[in-house]
């Protein structure tokens, strides 16, 4: 009996918090607003918002992938003072409010900021900087444990056999961590796609200019364009489901 009670509790909780609300929105959009949804999705400003989001993802994710691998190598293989500090600092965005990230960028690049001369605020570079900051840790956090687990014997062997550091990295290190990198990249992509708080502060949220997809959802809802809000949400949810499928496919390979 206890087993069934626990199963019931867990499934009811997941249904009440995740599945039922998501299902209702999907059903609602297709039942009542399918036509409106299509019009809203093909609206010029909506398309532009998705374009902004995709550009931000396209720049942030590769940069963070390279950074994540580099920082993981430094943390696991390197020996230098302040390593613990570096480790903690890389994790910081996981525990930090995205609004705080946005305010920090706002104050650095704003009118009275140290780097006000760059005119970054309320433009695409600000959105990219915010996306990079909030999604900084994901690749590193996946790669660090894998790198620890595989050890450095193979790298040492490659080195002994005359491989250059680059050859060793491409032929030995990278293949052994590739699934961790893929998993981290998927998480980074999801985080950048869904970013709201930091981007809301620094982008200026100008429709058709610096508005991203998530900002468009909020804007549409608050302007009582519910069909638009649901349509963009559903498109984002669809991407989330694809992300989820990739995550599930990659997960069992971890540690191999």
């Amino acid at each position: 009996m206890g087993k069934f009670a626990l199963r019931g509790v867990a499934l009811f909780y997941l249904a009440a918090i995740l599945l039922a609300p998501l299902g209702l929105v999907v059903w609602h959009t297709f039942r009542y607003d399918a036509h409106d949804a299509w019009i809203a999705l093909t609206d010029h400003n909506t398309l532009h918002a998705f374009q902004m989001t995709l550009i931000a993802v396209g720049i942030s994710v590769p940069l963070n992938a390279v950074f994540g691998i580099a920082v993981a190598l430094a943390i696991v293989r390197g020996r230098f003072p302040g390593k613990g500090l570096l480790n903690a600092f890389v994790d910081l965005p996981l525990a930090l409010s995205p609004v705080v990230v946005g305010v920090a960028l706002f104050l650095l690049y704003g009118r009275t900021g140290w780097l006000s001369g760059f005119h970054v605020l309320f433009s695409l570079p600000a959105i990219v900087l915010a996306s990079i900051f909030v999604s900084l840790p994901f690749v590193a956090r996946e790669v660090v444990p894998t790198l620890r687990e595989v050890g450095d014997e193979q790298e040492q062997a490659a080195h002994t056999l005359g491989a250059s550091p680059w050859q060793t990295f491409w032929r030995v290190t990278l293949p052994s961590i590739r699934w961790a990198v893929v998993y981290g990249v998927v998480l980074t992509t999801a985080r950048c796609l869904g970013e709201y708080g930091a981007v809301a502060v620094v982008s200026g949220n100008i429709e058709g200019k610096t508005q991203t997809a998530t900002l468009a959802v909020q804007d549409a809802y608050e302007n009582l364009d519910h069909a638009g809000a649901y349509a963009i949400s559903l498109a984002l949810a669809l991407i989330a489901v694809v992300v989820l499928v990739v995550m599930t496919a990659v997960r069992p390979r971890e540690g191999h």
């Binding site: 995740l18 869904g194 709201y196 959802v217 949400s233 984002l236 989330a240």
Partner: peptide
């Protein structure tokens, strides 16, 4: 069900 648990990590928070 196991896959669904990750949904909040994948879904934008505004959504």
């Amino acid at each position: 069900v196991n896959a669904v648990v990750d949904l909040p990590f994948a879904l934008p928070t505004v959504v």
